[in-house]
Design a protein around this nucleic acid. Sequence first.
DNA 1: CCCATCTATCGACATCTGTCAATATCGACT
DNA 2: AGTCGATATTGACAGATGTCGATAGATGGG
Lengths: 117, 117
Amino acid sequence: MTTMLEVTDVTAAGTCCTPLVREPISADEAEQLAQTMKALADPARLRLLSIVAASENTEACVCDLIEPVGLSQPTVSHHLKVLTTAGFLTRSKRGTWAYFKLVPGALDRISQLFVGS
Amino acid sequence: MTTMLEVTDVTAAGTCCTPLVREPISADEAEQLAQTMKALADPARLRLLSIVAASENTEACVCDLIEPVGLSQPTVSHHLKVLTTAGFLTRSKRGTWAYFKLVPGALDRISQLFVGS
DNA sequence: CCCATCTATCGACATCTGTCAATATCGACT
DNA sequence: AGTCGATATTGACAGATGTCGATAGATGGG
């Protein structure tokens, strides 16, 4: 069985360079941006993102993320997937370990959206 | 009957001046920030915020917000309350009309949190 | 004083979401 | 091949969330 992978990447059209304080955003833009913001609207994901961002080379192994956030391994895996799908992290496997790395500029793009108020 | 009003204002401690890319944020900080982000993680609320921000004096009447977002009046009222509780809007009543105004700097504070990546 | 209008609250409902236990998958090493 | 360790997927479940209709509260006008 195949399922559609909902791609709501932070780099998608509409989520960049359209400060929402200038003019009303469209329904589609709002839908896309909301999807991106949902990825950031969870305490576990914010902590994971923060830990990865503060790590060496802004990269961390899953094995190093489970204990700090105090959640089960499947749950951490789930959150990392959400952050990756949203375009904030990339995944690379080295050996049996999976490393998640911050996507350069991804958070900066979010930052740009809210400037000017 | 009285109910506790959950105050998760954007100006609360921890949500300001603590870039989450520098060092891992605490569980409490993550919880507070997530609560704030949840307010922005909805297409209807993003549109409402956008419309208000783009209006004269960054202020708009509820009656002018219902039609653009295409939702029922109670739903719009609900979303405006969420945005107000989160510290993004303020409410002032003039006559029978309720005006919601953008809180200066509220979105900028969010913007600051994600700079540096 | 009654009515019309604008807004907020309540109650109900379907859907989404975060979480975990169990299990599957994948890779490395004997 | 077999085993072990790391990670992903599945299934299930409780709780949160978005939505609306009905209703209540407030405000101004006849």
